[in-house]
Design a protein around this nucleic acid. Sequence first.
DNA 1: AGTGCCGGATGACAGATGTCATACGGATCA
DNA 2: TGATCCGTATGACATCTGTCATCCGGCACT
Lengths: 204, 204
Amino acid sequence: MTSMIKVLLAEDQSMVREALAALLGLEDDIEVVAQVARGDEVLAAVGAHGVDVALLDIEMPGCTGIAAAAQVHREFPQVKLVVLTTFGRPGYLRSAMEAGADAFLVKDAPAAQLAEAIRKVLAGERVIDPTLAAAALADGANPLTEREREVLRAAADGSTNAELARTLHLSQGTVRNYLSTAIQKLAVRNRAEAVRIAREKGWL
Amino acid sequence: MTSMIKVLLAEDQSMVREALAALLGLEDDIEVVAQVARGDEVLAAVGAHGVDVALLDIEMPGCTGIAAAAQVHREFPQVKLVVLTTFGRPGYLRSAMEAGADAFLVKDAPAAQLAEAIRKVLAGERVIDPTLAAAALADGANPLTEREREVLRAAADGSTNAELARTLHLSQGTVRNYLSTAIQKLAVRNRAEAVRIAREKGWL
DNA sequence: AGTGCCGGATGACAGATGTCATACGGATCA
DNA sequence: TGATCCGTATGACATCTGTCATCCGGCACT
């Protein structure tokens, strides 16, 4: 072969990251040239190693793999982006695509799809699970406004209205109004359900 | 070497499972003889392959890795048990140990510790992260009764008291009493916080 | 210039939630 | 044989939550 495919691996759990590296190491046209454990280290590592493909987990400290993907897409548009995640949330797929991802894989897909996806994106193809794509389209766009999302996110830990009002610098009534509209938009009956549904859809 | 160490790998996310298999495959005294994706397939696989060590993820469909560990420990007491988990929850460690686990690893530990742990448990050692062990001891035992846990678990999805009463065949007042005592035992101010804290500690 | 959406706020009201005292039967343990 | 804990239940009470109507200023689109 003329040259190896240079891959960056971004995943916070060392054991999983190194295991994925071992897996990709079995392929003789792929070389893992860099590994990072945080989203905010991705951009620098991509610049430093001249990678061809960045493999990004979504849930990472620093910043999410999706945010990292957006940065890389802006600074190094020729780098291909594969987003890998535990959770097949339709909203995640949507944001990953908007961030410029070329492939979106869930971790419970067969391992063989990983190397395959890397080769495909380099060939200019896009790799997306059709079931997930359908779900993303069926769900439509995130109906929540930025502020509603913020309040819902803050409410997720069980904070009371008074605490939310304090931390968000809002009046208690406003907090309740936002939660109320979020509850209605998500067609549920209380904030706990709203948090759960918004999480499941990847809208938080 | 006289013989390879036979390992069973139980983990529901294929990509992670096969990646871990690749990682262990690099060790020349270890052989992954079986892989399963569900907790309730562990026991049969252990019996069928005469494994030396079972490597069990906790979060799995069918039954948890901890429940699977307990089954294996009962039926095949000579099989060593390594529990592997994403979440370093003190309560998980405690229950894993009670189920007869020989090692408890978190997925963000370095990958090298995995093969190392497998060799150590076979040598009769126990492998436990000291920080986590300290946390488990500091937290003490789960203060919740079985019934309180059930109600809290059922309440986690945002169900209302009326719904909980119906699904658990209790009166609404009883549901509120259980949640109230759980809230007090966990020293929090509402059910949502109670769910969060109980989850974090591994008490759910 | 008008319409609509967003962020933000208030007040009133109904219903849900959390607390507390109290009660009873069964189990367990000293 | 008490003492204690668990599961279950009731009623009363205070507080929290969710809804609704209504309002304001700003921004965007027609």
